[in-house]
C-alpha cells in the first residue's frame, strides 16, 4: 500500500469538496478498494470516508412507496432491514461472508460495478433510481459495462431508490472460488411488467434479458421460458465456465427465480 491522506467528513457537501483533490477517492466499506490498494493496484492520494455521513445511512420508505437505501448502508443492514423488499434483502444476505456484509456497502458495490457483483442485478431489475450529490440516474442509464458507470469523477452515490415489485427473487450461482456470482439473475414482477437482470455472465456487465421479460410479462411462470436461454455470444468464458455454460445458467436461474418468486 502507498501512503495516502485520510478524511472523514460528516456531510455530503464536505465529502464532495474533499473529493475535489486530485486522485482523491471515496472509501466506503473498503472491501474492494483496500485489497486493491494492498496489491498496489490503486494509489489514491487521499481517501474520503463516507462512513461518517449520517444522511447516507439507513433504509426508509419514500412517498411513492419506493424503498430508499442510503448509499453507505451496509449489506448486513439491508439484509436485516429491507423486509419490505424480500428479494433485495435476500440478495444482500447472500453477498460474501458476515465480515464482508458488515463493512461492504450498497453504494460501494454499485459504484464499483464488478461484472460479477450482485447489487447491479438488483438495481437494474428493480428499475431503481441512483441518487447522487448532483443528480438522479435511472438504472437503465447507469450501468455502462464492466467496472464502468455513469458516475463522474468525484460524484457520490448518496441513495438508491427501489420501486418495490409484487414478486421478486435473486438466484445466485456461486463461482466456486470467489463466491461472487458466476451467474446471478434477479427477477422483479411489477404491475406493468417483469424485469430480468443478469450479472456475472456478460462481458458487457449486468444486462436485462428482454426476451425473457417479454415472455414472463405475459405469463409469469417458469414454463413461459422453458428451454429459453440467451445466446452465448459476448458471454464471459474463463476457468470457471465457458460462455455456453454461462448462457445456459442464465436460463436455469431465471426459471428458478420465477418459481421462487411465486
Amino acid at each position: 500500500m502507498y501512503n495516502f491522506d485520510f478524511e472523514k467528513p460528516s456531510t455530503i457537501a464536505d465529502a464532495v469538496s474533499a473529493l475535489g483533490t486530485e486522485d482523491a477517492q471515496a472509501l466506503a466499506g473498503g472491501q474492494t478498494l483496500l485489497p486493491t490498494m494492498k496489491q498496489r493496484l490503486a494509489s489514491p492520494s487521499k481517501l474520503v470516508s463516507l462512513n461518517g455521513i449520517a444522511e447516507m445511512q439507513g433504509i426508509c420508505t419514500g412517498d411513492d412507496g419506493a424503498l430508499c437505501i442510503g448509499g453507505a448502508t451496509t449489506h448486513a443492514d439491508v439484509a436485516a432491514g429491507a423486509g419490505a423488499y424480500p428479494g433485495l434483502a435476500g440478495l444482500a444476505a447472500g453477498i460474501g461472508d458476515p465480515a464482508v456484509r458488515a463493512r461492504g456497502t450498497i453504494g460501494g458495490s454499485l459504484a464499483n460495478n464488478d461484472p460479477s457483483a450482485c447489487y447491479p442485478a438488483g438495481a437494474l431489475a428493480s428499475g431503481a433510481t441512483l441518487v447522487t450529490n448532483a443528480r438522479e440516474i435511472a438504472a437503465d442509464d447507469y450501468f455502462q459495462g464492466m467496472f464502468t458507470t455513469a458516475l463522474d469523477e468525484g460524484e457520490i452515490l448518496t441513495e438508491v431508490r427501489f420501486p418495490v415489485p409484487e414478486a421478486s427473487n435473486y438466484q445466485k450461482f456461486e463461482q466456486p472460488a470467489s463466491r461472487f456470482a458466476l451467474v446471478g439473475v434477479f427477477v422483479a414482477k411489477f404491475a406493468d411488467g417483469v424485469r430480468v437482470a443478469v450479472t456475472g455472465a456478460s462481458e458487457e456487465g449486468v444486462f436485462r434479458w428482454t426476451e425473457a421479460e417479454t415472455a414472463l410479462s405475459g405469463n409469469f411462470s417458469a414454463e413461459a421460458i422453458a428451454d429459453m436461454a440467451p445466446g452465448s455470444d459476448g458471454m464471459i468464458s474463463d476457468l470457471h465456465g465457458t460462455a455456453a455454460y454461462r448462457a445456459h445458467l442464465v436460463g436455469v436461474l431465471t426459471r428458478r427465480a420465477v418459481t421462487a418468486a411465486g
Binding site: F173, P176, L182, H240, G241, T242, Y245, H248
Partner: peptide, 13 residues
C-alpha cells in the same frame, strides 16, 4: 478433477 459444475455440465452436454 476438479469436477466443477461447468466440467460436469460440459460432460453431460
Amino acid at each position: 478433477m476438479p469436477v466443477s459444475p461447468s466440467r460436469v455440465w460440459q460432460a453431460m452436454n
